[in-house]
Structure formats: C-alpha cells, structure tokens
Design a protein around this nucleic acid. Structure first.
Lengths: 358, 358
DNA sequence: CTGAAAGCGCTAACAG
DNA sequence: CTGTTAGCGCTTTCAG
C-alpha cells in the first residue's frame, strides 16, 4: 500500500500566505474584493506549491462543475467512436468531459446507467449523455440525453439512427444478390435498436415473399463471443443459410471467424452483412459489408443537445434520428446455386465461377 | 437554468427509515453491527427512494474510491484506441474507469496532465494512466503510469512503443522503393515520441548516404490541420519530394488531402507513410502505408501496470517498449523518374507506366 | 478588503 | 446495536 498522498490543500496555501482559506478561494476563483497585493502574494504561493483545487471538494460544495459526463457500459468500438464525436461537440464550450465506464462485465446488470447517473449527478457532473442505456428513467431533473436508448422513446431527448431502415436495406442487399436462405444473428431483445433491426430483417423478407424461418434466427447479444455460438448453430444446420445478416459488426466479425474455422470462404460460400460500420469492420477479413451509422455525429449531436439543455435553451427536436446507409465491401457476393463442398473442405477455385442468379 | 436537482441523500433515507445516517451508511457499505430487522427496513427505503451514494461525497471522506483515471488531452483516434485496451485491462479487477479529457484545445497549454492529476488524485481516483503527457512530474505519491510520455523516461513507469525503429523502417521502406527526396512532416518537438521519429528518419537517410535537407522537413504538430500547411509547403517546393513520411497518421491523412487538392495522385506521384496505424489509416484514400503501434495493447498494459502498483505488487519492468512494424498498404509505390506534370494537372493514365528505379 | 463560520454528502471513531 | 460528533476540501454568506 502506498502512503497517503500528501495533497496540498487550500489550508496549506492559506497558512503559507498568511491569509484565510476564504481569501485563497476568492483568488483562485477570481472573485472581487481582494487587494491587489494580497492577490499577488497568494497567487505566488499557489504557484510555488503547485496547488490545484480538488474537483471533488469543489463540486460537493457548489453544485455546478462545468463537467459533463458520458456514461457507457463499456469501452468498445461503438462507444469509442462516439467519444470522438462527443469530444468534437464539447470543444470550445468551456465544459470538460468525464467518461464513466461501468467496466464491461457489469452490463449484465440492468440499470447500470441509473446507478452511475445518480452517483455522479448533482455532485460531479452537470448533465450526462447516456450511451445505449437499458432504461431511460422518468425525465430526471438534471439534463440528460440518451444515445441509442434501448427502450424506445420517453421524455428524455434522444439521438439514434434509423435502425429499421438500415436493417431493411441490408437484408434487401442480400435479396438482390439472389440469396433466399438468409440467417439473422440477433442482438439483445431488451434493446430497442436490436428489436428494430430484427424487424427490418423480417420486413424485407416478408416484402420479398419469403416466410420467416425461425431456425435461421439465433441470438448473438451484440457480442462477438455469443455471436460465434449463434453462427456455429446456423452454419452447421442441415441446410445452412447462404447469407447471414448480423445485428452489429462485432457479431458479424464473429460470424466471419466461425465461417473460416468451418473452412468456408466468405463471400464465395457465405455472404455476411454487419451493422454499425465501426472501424473494425474495414479491418475484418474480408472487409465487411455493413450498414453505416454516423456514430461520431451521433456523439457530437448528443453533446450539443445536452449543452443546449444546460444553457436553458429550447432544443430543436426531442428525438433525432440520423440516416443509415449501406456500405458494400467484400463480404457479400451473388448467391451461387452449386456449393462446391467436398468432404467438408471447399474447392479453392471458386472465385468467379457461377454467375449471379438474381 | 434548470432547477437544482433534488438529490436523494443519506439524510432522506435516514429520516424515512427512522434511523441515523450512520446506520444507513453501515447498511450501504455492508458493515457489521446492524440488526437484521433494521438492515432490512433501511434497505427497503433505499430501494424505494432509489438512493445511490454520491461518489464525490464518499471519496472526499474515505480516500479510497476504487476508481482509476485515464487522463487524456483529447479524444482522438489514438486515445480512443487506447481506451479500448484499457477497458480490457480493467475487466474483472473490481475497479472502475474514469476518463478525463482536457477538451482538446486546452492542449496548447503545457502541463495539463499535472493540473488534472492533482485535481482528481486523492479525491476521485486512486491512481492514473497519463496518456502522452508533456511532463511527467517527479514521481508522485500516487500510482501513475505514463503512456508514450513526451519527455523520455523518468521515475514513473512507462509504456511506449519503439518509435525510433518504427521511423527507421518507414523511411527505409521509402528508400527501398527508390525514393531519394523524402520529406518529413514532424510532430511536436516537446514530445519524446516525436523526436524519436524524426531521429529515425534522419538515421535511415544517413545510413543510405543521403544528406538531410532542412527544406524537406516541416512541422505538422501531430495535427491534421497544421500538417496540411506543412504538406503544402513541401509539395509546392521548386523541387518537391517524391515521398513524405509523416510523424503520425493524422498528419499523413493531411498530406493526402493536400496532395489531392494539388491534383497529385497517391501513390503514383507521391508516396506517403504514416505512423500509428489507427483505424482511420485504413479508411484513408488510398489506404495508408503506416507503422503499426500496438495501441490497444499499450492501454491494456498501462492499466495492468497501474493495478499492480495499486496492489502494492512489484512490477516486472519500469519501462515497457512494445515493438512497432511496417504495414504496407496503398499509399506507397516505387519512385518514377519522369513526373508527368502538365500545366499543374496530372495525366490520368499514370498507373503502371514507368517501372521502379530502385 | 478580509476572516469566521456553516455546510455540501458522506464515513469513521467513539459513546451510549 | 445505534446515534452523536467530527471533519474530508472547498465555497459562501455575513460580520468585522
């Protein structure tokens, strides 16, 4: 155990400068009513000692901190991307940013966002952006903006993207390529975005006159590991799908991994589409066809919305839904009737053989 | 202005449950010495009211918070990537993570890390990871690990990557392609990593028997905007370089932008190499040849080091330097003697014309 | 212009 | 087992 750090407090400064703590406080905060000479002397001592007021003590006293919080369940590709946008949104606002992470594995526990919010709000932060919260509480007294909330829309301002249409066009892309047996690796049913993505999948299929086959739907929970299990189930079916739409990129990357381990070539033997367009999707092998969400922009808008709220300004819209779009890369290809499976292994010369069968 | 949030405090709970605040505190913290009946009653009130202790008030009192801080100047690709690794490192440790961002534009002010560290340490966080700090103080009483510190190595444990060799192999790659006039977009001279990268550039050139030409070196400050100015100066030289090595990917992306605006084709007319291998480098047009730093791993190791320190365990090594490697993508090509410039515009049919001249 | 005193929400002795 | 008291580091009236 390390020794208690000898923090330099306002008392140390006051003692050394021969004034009261109240005076030091005034100097630090640039309040009026301090003689120029005193001010200078105190300032010198502050510099000497390298004194810096404790954010915590200060915010406990004055319920204004000029800090906004971004609460995330974990720091994964999606939230990391969002943070870049959030940083852009806060620039020049005079506010500072604190990101609080529940630490990943805590996220099985529902309602983490409420816990962290109440823990911090009113003391450390003036307002918060909640990233993919499972529950958005009854509108709290403190300004809160939710990004991609799990339970649809409530009283709190919200930023999300068009999950329904994104899923539709992703599925449609696969249909256009001639695929008919299209698997779906679902997200988490408690999340609104996840439900909408599944709905988009179903809608597109229905519109094409294809009946939903329950055995082609497996839950991957938005996580790579679970998704690998799901993908395995799908791909070892007696009659496996020729294409899989995964509810997010991490899941799609899991599908890719399983396909490879099964000796399948993507996209020759299996087409895969993801959702999110996180940077990792480009790095995937092969680069993933996916649905683009303007994640950074979502982060930026959420922060800007929060800043308006904090300033007491009316906000343009309660709920912002940003458009999604399809990004075609190399994980999708036209459906081929003949599957050149030979004893479980696949022929290597598949490329460019049978043409599309749209 | 929004009304003061009616935070539910320990007093509210105490009053409602008909006990003292001390008792509530004991219940919350699971201390011994509370009657089962009381415990249950208090617990019920806590649930009813949705009470959650203020992290701030608590940490002010008990100087242990189980929270570690990651202090960054800004949330850009590098730090965002690092956070993913940090999150992995903290998983299962029981600690929580707070990321504190100075908010970008504050970073012209040197020493932000000291300020934020003293602001938070001893009150909000038990220890910290400093990301690219400009100054690493005399070893503080509180556990601190620096990632890619700017001023070489001091008493504080450090995680970085092999900047010198990375820069060497990047430059060598360009030399191997036959380039002789190789420009350099430098970082910030106050940063150790930046100095090492410049040194690597100079070393490689010297080893190839090429004299350093000062007019081929411009400062880009690790920022895209500055780097564009630097690149513009370089590319409008009477005798411009045929290749540019940029001190980081953001700078290289700036170089790409300027090259395009000048009507140059990359890599046909200009080869560009970056440094970092952030996800953005793959997204660049064309995908950037760059030096890979294991950024996520650096974040993870930094956190693990800090955790050891916090646990009072001896650490394996004071200074960890992870290896760097070259990632060849599409922004580099062999040098061509003849530059098909025609009135400032470039012929479109450059591809595959004159062969390498290594 | 300056300082004494109160108190933010909480925990840690110590009495009762 | 429970409550009282003190005080973490700071800001804020309010007297002097």
């Amino acid at each position: 155990m390390t020794a208690t750090p000898p923090r330099i407090t306002i008392h140390d400064v006051a003692a050394r400068a021969g004034v009261s703590t109240a005076t030091v406080s005034k100097v630090v905060n640039g309040r009026y009513g301090v003689a120029a000479a005193t001010n200078e002397r105190v300032q010198r001592v502050i510099d000497e000692l390298g004194y810096e007021p404790s954010l915590v003590a200060r915010s406990l006293r004055s319920h204004r901190t000029n800090v906004i919080g971004i609460l995330v369940a974990d720091l994964e590709p999606f939230s990391a991307e969002l943070l870049k946008g959030a940083a852009r949104g806060i620039r020049g606002s005079g506010y500072e940013l604190v990101v609080y992470s529940a630490g990943g594995r805590t996220n099985d526990q529902i309602g983490w966002e409420h816990k962290y919010l109440t823990r911090l709000v009113g003391t450390l932060i003036d307002g918060a952006v909640l990233v993919t919260p499972t529950i958005v509480d009854a509108p709290s007294e403190v300004p809160v903006v939710a990004v991609d909330p799990h339970r649809g829309r409530t009283g709190t301002p919200t930023v999300d993207s068009d999950n329904l249409n994104g899923a539709r066009i992703a599925t449609q892309h696969l249909l256009d390529l001639g695929h008919r047996r299209i698997g779906f690796v679902a997200g988490r049913s408690d999340l609104e975005s996840s439900r909408l993505r599944e709905k988009g999948y179903r809608t597109a299929l229905a519109a094409a006159g294809i009946a939903i086959n329950p055995e082609l739907i497996e839950v991957g929970g938005y996580e790579q590991e679970f998704s690998e299990t799901a993908a395995h189930a799908l791909l070892t079916l007696p009659e496996p799908p020729s294409a899989i739409f995964a509810a997010n990129d991490l899941s799609a990357i899991g599908v890719l991994a399983v396909a490879h381990s099964l000796g399948m070539q993507v996209p020759a033997d299996l087409s895969v589409v993801g959702f999110d367009n996180v940077p990792e999707s480009v790095l995937a092998d092969p680069p993933l066809t996916t649905v683009n969400q303007p994640i950074q922009k979502m982060g930026q808008m959420a922060v800007e919305l929060l800043l308006s709220l904090l300033a007491g300004q009316p906000i343009a819209a309660e709920h912002l839904t940003l458009p999604t779009s399809l990004v075609v890369r190399q994980s999708t290809a036209p459906f081929r009737t003949v599957k050149p499976r030979r004893g479980g292994r696949l022929a290597r010369s598949a490329k460019g053989r049978s043409p599309a069968k749209a």
